[in-house]
Design a protein around this nucleic acid. Structure first.
Lengths: 130, 130
DNA sequence: TTTCTTGCAAAACATTTGCAAATCG
DNA sequence: CGATTTGCAAATGTTTTGCAAGAAA
């Protein structure tokens, strides 16, 4: 723990791509964007680097109930909502009611330190189509 | 839509296993439990049947941010919380504050008809170990 | 017959791992 | 040097798909 930050060329490039992306890219998205910037890293390297960057908390890995992981450079606490129709991900910035968390904690006996919540709904465009 | 229910031997056996299981089994769990009951269905059949049973709403498919889908015969509305340490899944039966949903809906422009929320926390046993 | 379902194997997909080569300190 | 990281390919785990055979309506 409290290790010295070791940003290699690859890790730095990957971090930059995630920081520049505001659409929660997947590993495949990241590799594609790296290519347009002239970087051609192996899959293994990209996954390794993403894991490293997640461990040192420069990025967050989002598991939103799809089959893929997404990555987010926004590290302050916030939640996500996923469109059940098109898969689009939006950030939820409304605070979670504290007393609800307390109730959930009491009922389930789970400790909730950093709430991490994934919601589902229909995004605006998809709602119109229905 | 409004199709006639067609429960084949396989589908019925799979439904029974899910109904008897209260631990949100994965497809692999279900296949294993079918075997102890003397059923040996192909993987494809089990996945097909689970999709069918989900479509006719006899069960629910849970995507809880792991790499696998889990299945649940409890079809009334409730949420889930997953232990970040051991992966154990608990049901959240506390109602979600309606005004919070309204706020989320306003901020994100998402329509939330049937709230489906996945939370993360530390289960009781894992919390003790920390 | 026509439609749906099953079984099996192969394919698809995201991710991890093993290992040799390269790099860093 | 020793420790870490990279690149590549192969392996893994979950789920889907194609297709022929079987069952049901």
């Amino acid at each position: 723990m409290a290790q010295k930050l070791n940003l290699t060329v690859q890790r730095r490039a990957i971090l930059e791509v995630v920081q520049e992306s505001h659409d929660h890219p997947t590993a495949a998205d990241i590799i594609e964007r790296l290519r347009t910037k002239g970087f051609n890293f192996a899959y293994g390297t990209v996954y390794n680097s993403l894991r490293y960057l997640t461990e040192v908390e420069l990025i967050k890995e989002l598991k939103l109930g799809e089959s893929v992981s997404r990555y987010d450079a926004r590290t302050e606490e916030h939640q996500h909502i996923v469109c059940t129709s098109c898969g689009h991900v939006e950030e939820v910035l409304v605070d979670i009611p504290q007393e609800w968390l307390v109730q959930v904690s009491e009922q389930t006996k789970y400790t909730i330190q950093h709430p991490h919540i994934v919601m589902e709904g229909l995004c605006e465009q998809c709602a119109i189509k229905h």
